[in-house]
């Protein structure tokens, strides 16, 4: 019962916010092109929903592809860097560049060099998502228990045995932490990329539709897109949280049930 009320608090807060918003729009009689109320947005979601869903799928495809690509390349790169420290010295500064460079500034070049819009979006979203995975996995690979390392050395473990049975499991919690950050970043990267790439029409992603609607001052529709994107981002977060919990619940402090 107590747990239920705990879960109710965010709902109560959300409801209060929506009510205030609704009241504001009614009180000042605001037109749709300035600020539509929650009811108008809900109507737009209901009417345009099926149409927008297609665009959501386009956005989601790019986001997930970028996330999967970032997970593999990020983890792979971290493994490579930790095996050969010279490489780490050589390459890590450039990985930092990848992180600190705003992707908006890279987008025009990618658009010129790459024809296929899907790949343009994929590259930009990947750029946004890959760094936390590299740096977290690298940290995890370096945080292996020193005694366990000695144990593996004592029993003459090969490089691949040490990697598979010691380094990778040790780094898993860190990798998953990076993945949770990157999930959100992949979506943000996709959205920014869509807006910059400036595609339009039904085959384009949700962010492009949002922009399109806002140009036409159809703010209910634009906000419906916004709501769908936010919910998607939250959904990605929940899924990654669940994956992390499934993988770590038996052994890692961060995922232990209370009372253990």
């Amino acid at each position: 019962m107590k747990r239920l009320t705990m879960h109710l608090w965010p709902v109560v807060f959300g409801m209060a916010l929506l009510a205030a918003w609704h009241g504001l729009v009614i009180f000042y009689a605001l037109p749709e092109y300035i600020l539509p109320g929650p009811v108008a947005i809900a109507q737009s979601l209901w009417i345009d929903g099926p149409d927008l869903l297609g665009s959501l799928i386009v956005t989601l495809q790019v986001t997930l592809a970028a996330l999967v690509l970032a997970a593999f390349t990020g983890a792979g790169l971290a493994i490579l860097l930790v095996q050969f420290r010279v490489l780490e010295k050589m390459l890590f500064p450039y990985a930092v560049f990848l992180q600190v460079t705003p992707i908006v500034t890279v987008a025009p070049f990618i658009i010129i060099w790459v024809d296929d819009v899907f790949f343009v979006l994929l590259i930009l979203a990947w750029m946004a998502a890959v760094f936390p995975i590299i740096s977290n996995t690298l940290l995890g690979l370096k945080s292996v228990d020193a005694n366990l390392r000695d144990l593996f050395r004592l029993y003459g473990a090969t490089r691949s045995q040490t990697l598979r049975r010691l380094l990778l499991p040790s780094a898993l919690p860190y990798f998953l932490g990076g993945l949770r950050i990157s999930g959100g970043l992949a979506l943000i990267g996709t959205v920014v990329a869509e807006m910059v790439a400036g595609t339009s029409g039904q085959s384009s992603g949700l962010a492009a539709r949002l922009l399109e609607a806002s140009y036409r001052l159809e703010l209910s529709r634009a906000l419906a897109c916004f709501v769908l994107l936010s919910v998607t981002g939250y959904g990605i977060y929940l899924v990654l949280n669940w994956v992390s919990h499934r993988l770590l619940r038996h052994w890692h402090e961060s995922e232990m049930e209370e009372g253990h």
Partner: peptide
């Protein structure tokens, strides 16, 4: 070792078997 130095992600049986596997 001074600490049990077990792999936290592996069961007790898997931990005990690791020297044989390596």
């Amino acid at each position: 070792f001074q600490d049990p130095t077990l792999m936290p992600w592996a069961t007790i049986a898997e931990n005990v078997a690791i020297p044989l596997r390596l």
